[in-house]
């Protein structure tokens, strides 16, 4: 039922459904920036309906077997292929046990019907400032693997997202997988999201915490506060100090709320977001520490 309004229809394009990665890369090479890759389509299709993008070629990668990888190897970490959906991740027991922050973010992303189609890699490639996927991935130091016909490269998720709807991906390239490094047994991680009933997070936060006698490693990552996800590096340093952990957490939460670049928009003022950063940082870190 097209009412003639663009909002209800899609622009014209040619649909391709390659069976192999090689075939997909050849199509991407041939059509360059006129082509868009589609996995779940839950991001691409609304963007096309609104004519924010109008690719003349849509390359559906769902049939490509080598992109369906979901595999953990001890010592190496977890590999998540480009067509793995949020629902598949939600059911993957290892995620719940080992990569808690990612599991919690997956559970809170959109709704469970959308999650049947939406992929984690699609979520990252959208690079919308309030999406949940990239936040825990940056906390784990995850990298994306990018392939073109003549190159394979890896780049940290933190660098891959350059700004709102802007990613480090050239025409002819495709993100094939995400790699999360293996993490020590003692490491704790978690994710929190604050939203007011709409899908738009006012703040999302992931923490990775490894505090043992031998080694300390802390990462605090924030989304929905400015143009791209950001780490609170000064707050992380506070948590690396020796001393009463609860006191350090309070100091780190205050520091994070001060050091990060935060915007005001229609959803929340800068002051309100800074307040949320402080409260949620404290809440998340205390939860993680109590588990230790």
């Amino acid at each position: 039922m097209s009412f003639g309004s663009p909002y209800f229809t899609l622009p014209e394009f040619t649909y391709h459904k390659p069976k192999t990665l090689r075939e997909a890369l050849e199509l991407l090479e041939k059509y360059g920036d006129e082509a868009k890759v589609m996995a779940g389509g839950v991001g691409l299709i609304p963007f096309m309906k609104e004519r924010l993008i109008s690719p003349t070629h849509v390359i559906d990668i769902k049939e490509i077997a080598e992109l369906k990888k979901l595999e953990y190897k001890k010592g190496e970490g977890l590999t998540i292929g480009a067509t793995i959906t949020f629902s598949e991740l939600e059911k993957y027991q290892l995620l719940k046990e080992k990569y808690r922050a990612l599991y919690q973010a997956v559970k809170l992303a959109s709704d469970n019907i959308i999650r049947n189609r939406a992929t984690l890699i699609g979520n990252i490639c959208e690079a919308i400032p309030w999406v949940d996927g990239p936040i825990p991935l940056i906390a784990y130091g995850a990298e994306v693997e990018i392939k073109s016909l003549d190159e394979v490269r890896r780049t940290p998720v933190a660098d891959f997202i350059k700004g709102p709807v802007e990613i480090d991906l050239k025409p002819g390239e495709i993100v094939t997988s995400i790699h999360l490094p293996d993490i020590p047994e003692e490491a704790k991680s978690g994710f929190l999201k604050f939203n007011t009933g709409s899908e738009f997070a006012l703040l999302n936060i992931a923490a990775y915490l490894l505090i043992t006698a031998k080694k300390k490693d802390v990462r605090l990552v924030y989304g929905a506060i400015s143009s791209k996800p950001a780490r609170a590096l000064e707050a992380e340093k506070i948590l690396l100090r020796d001393g009463d952990l609860n006191a350090l957490i309070s100091m780190a939460a205050i520091k994070a709320s001060e050091e990060l670049e935060v915007i005001s928009d229609v959803l929340a003022s800068e002051d309100y977001r800074r307040h949320l950063i402080k409260i949620l940082t404290m809440k998340l870190l205390k939860e993680l520490v109590e588990e230790v």
């Binding site: 899609l10 649909y15 459904k17 779940g40 389509g41 839950v42 299709i45 609304p46 849509v58 559906d60 769902k62 629902s87 469970n112 019907i113 959308i114 049947n116 189609r117």
Partner: peptide, 12 residues
């Protein structure tokens, strides 16, 4: 699987 059909291409 439940899906929202407004976000699915028919040809898929």
């Amino acid at each position: 699987k439940l899906v929202k059909s407004c976000l699915v291409l028919a040809v898929e």
